[in-house]
């Protein structure tokens, strides 16, 4: 019965997302049409004359009135057709599907890295609030979030690749000598492991480290802060006092009881950070020549590639909505109170 309430809750969350998605479809359409520059002139190439530009405008359907263009865009969209990128000539949906795993792998890896550093930092800070440990953590994570990611990225490349030679060249997902592993998940590291190809696995991992570090550094702050806050709350709560009074070891109290109870808001924060990262890694992808959807979007924007920009934004929006939904679901399932209130 509780599940019934919860699934209804999930459905209503989905319904809430629909107007936002519709808004996005309209806004991106208008925004891309407002981009200056004439894609027809651009794609007619050098030495084109007015006639050949008009020809191309007609081919691209750009000579029709805007409402007609919008209508045909929405019709295609409803059939799952995101249109065709005029710059790569490929269907947008296909390009996004090819590139999405690259972005997701980088973002997830960065999130993992970030969480592995930030959560212990937050716990350490929470155990002795206002101590030097707390202050040092605060300084560190704030410094991380104060660095522009493209600057960090370039600096890391310079130090670890150019000067020290520890990192492989920043050439995307794999060194040239390796072939991409047979596709299962689209994540090179996981696919390589499934294929039991450890050399490729290491190579893919090595490529991931610098961009992931760049992103992770930027996202330590929210995770560490949330961990600290919720740990402090948990450590100050009744049941911890009871546990202390009953003589449990400090280690056990902190890591088993307090930590477990503090994790729920942290998981929510992780979700938010993930969607933020996915949007923010545009610049990191550019620095590391990472073939993700972010760099795809930048390229498309510069050449006024309508379909590609619209497809990218829409895909991201859908991803965000699904992610938020997922977080809500996890929250709902994990927290017994939510169901009752709904």
């Amino acid at each position: 019965m509780a599940l019934g309430v919860k699934s209804r809750l999930i459905l209503s969350r989905l319904a809430q997302a629909l107007p936002a998605l519709a808004g996005i479809v309209v806004v991106t359409f208008i925004l891309t049409r407002a981009l200056p520059g004439d894609p027809a002139a651009y794609f007619a190439g050098p030495a084109a004359d007015a006639r050949s530009i008009a020809q191309i405008r007609e081919q691209l359907g750009l000579d029709r009135p805007l409402p007609v263009q919008f209508l045909s865009y929405v019709t295609d969209l409803l059939q799952g057709d995101l249109g065709r990128s005029i710059s790569t000539g490929q269907p947008v949906a296909e390009a996004l599907m090819q590139r999405l795993p690259a972005s997701l792998e980088l973002t997830l890896f960065a999130l993992l890295l970030s969480a592995l550093i930030a959560i212990p930092l937050g716990v350490a800070a929470a155990r002795r609030p206002d101590s030097w440990v707390d202050q040092a953590c605060r300084l560190l994570v704030t410094a991380g979030v104060s660095l522009p990611t493209f600057f960090t990225g370039l600096l890391l490349v310079y130090v670890f690749y150019f000067i020290l030679g520890w990192a492989p060249p920043p050439l995307g997902r794999l060194d040239l000598i390796y072939l991409s592993p047979p596709q299962v998940t689209g994540f090179f590291t996981i696919d390589a492991l499934l294929d039991r190809d450890f050399a490729t696995f290491r190579a893919a991992l090595a490529q991931l480290v610098l961009p992931a570090m760049t992103l992770a550094l930027f996202t330590l702050a929210p995770i560490a802060r949330m961990t600290r806050a919720s740990m402090i709350q948990a450590l100050g709560s009744e049941f911890i006092r009871t546990a202390r009074a009953s003589g449990l070891s400090e280690r056990r109290i902190v890591y088993t009881y307090a930590f477990r109870n503090a994790m729920l808001p942290v998981v929510t924060t992780l979700g938010m950070v993930f969607s933020f990262m996915l949007g923010a890694n545009v610049l990191v992808e550019k620095v590391f020549a990472w073939p993700g959807i972010g760099s795809f979007a930048v390229e498309a924007l510069v050449v006024s590639d309508y379909a590609a920009v619209q497809g990218f934004v829409l895909a991201m929006a859908v991803l965000f909505v699904l992610l938020n939904l997922l977080i809500d679901v996890v929250y709902t399932l994990a927290d017994p109170r939510v169901g009752m209130e709904g």
Partner: peptide, 10 residues
């Protein structure tokens, strides 16, 4: 909701 559903930097 609409604004937040966009990748903000983009």
């Amino acid at each position: 909701d609409t604004i937040m559903a966009f990748p903000l930097f983009v």
